[in-house]
Design a protein around this nucleic acid. Structure first.
Lengths: 192, 192
DNA sequence: TGTACATCAGTGAACGCGCGTTCACTGATGTAC
DNA sequence: TGTACATCAGTGAACGCGCGTTCACTGATGTAC
């Protein structure tokens, strides 16, 4: 006996996860309460535990979802070296810097993820590797796994640049970080 | 009429700031409560507001202090290009990765700083610039300010690498990030 | 065809707890006489 | 020289509030007869 369509609850869960992705990136993990996360999804706090075992459980799911979205964006833009450069330009743009809630989860949350549970860090690792392996296959089509390390370093570089551009309160310096970060990423991609 | 030596209160304030530096880097800004920060300094929560106007006030002071310490460490190690490479090796070492509370405030807190008050971001900007300008003067002795952008990009890269090495839950990948991050930093320093 | 029922996603109040902040008080100190 | 006093860094309880989590309940639904 099925009272609601079998997709109804799954759809609600997904709605919570997507709203949480935005809120967590905007306010941080510790800065986002369960009641707020549920309100963002148009629900009340009580329904939370029908969908997730704990706040940490949602955080892990939201981070995994965010990385999957980012992978899809990357794959839509970048399927060769020129595409990778285009991706870097979009990534290190002022628009991305000024849109934390719509942007990269690593840039918004990486040091908080490093402090998170092993379960969350494991989901982060898996999600990032899916992205990294796509890029590594472009850089080194014959042996993608050998390009993993170098690709990770490129991501570390653009993630750090974005965080720094957001943290500095001097607009000129912030813009310089984005510009030079882009140059650095290009150097690394070409030498790879 | 002076009941306590004029240095007594200043010394206590400094003790709170230094203890807070360690705690904030370990547990994050939102993750560190005022009562805990005071206990770390051997005091009770009530004395806090005799030293600081608010938690945010202490956070700004602690971040400025941490950056000043890091500047002193850098200046002790790195006064030429070989010294900069030595600094990068120490920075991107497994020991630094595994010692969040004793390490770099940017690696521990950068995305939380980006979400902080303008006052805190301003103190961060000033503190980081003092470090950056020391490095820029080594890279480009004739015109240090022209090397600021490039130097900021190098810091963004090593900060991002450290955060990523801490977030990944696979020890081999984490080690690879540190290794490749070091290679990348060397490439950037040599081409600068 | 109409009604009673079982289901279950979601509600909203409540739990104990820690948060940032305030404040009346303590007690060790150096000074004044 | 001994005692009363003013100072003030620090104590610890309390403020209202939001935290993560629990739970008795609601009410819309599709089914059974």
């Amino acid at each position: 006996v099925v009272r609601y369509s079998s997709e109804h609850k799954d759809a609600t869960r997904q709605r919570i996860i997507e709203a949480a992705g935005r809120r967590l990136k905007a306010d941080g993990i510790d800065g986002s309460g369960v009641a707020t996360l549920m309100k963002d999804a148009g629900l009340t706090n009580g329904a939370f535990y029908a969908h997730f075992a704990s706040k940490d459980d949602l955080v892990g799911a939201a981070i995994a979802d965010q990385l999957d979205i980012q992978r899809a964006v990357l794959e839509a833009i970048a399927n060769d070296r020129a595409g990778l450069e285009a991706f870097v330009r979009v990534y290190l743009s002022p628009e991305h810097r000024d849109d934390r809630s719509g942007g990269c989860p690593s840039a918004a949350l990486l040091d908080e993820i490093a402090r998170s549970s092993e379960a969350t860090r494991s989901m982060y690792t898996d999600g990032l590797l899916a992205i990294v392996d796509h890029v590594a296959a472009i850089i080194e089509p014959d042996d993608p796994s050998s390009a993993r390390g170098r690709t990770l370093a490129v991501f570390a570089s653009i993630i750090g640049s974005m965080q720094l551009a957001r943290a500095l309160d001097d607009p000129d310096l912030s813009a310089a970080v984005l510009e030079e970060g882009t140059n650095v990423a290009f150097v690394l991609l070409r030498s790879a």
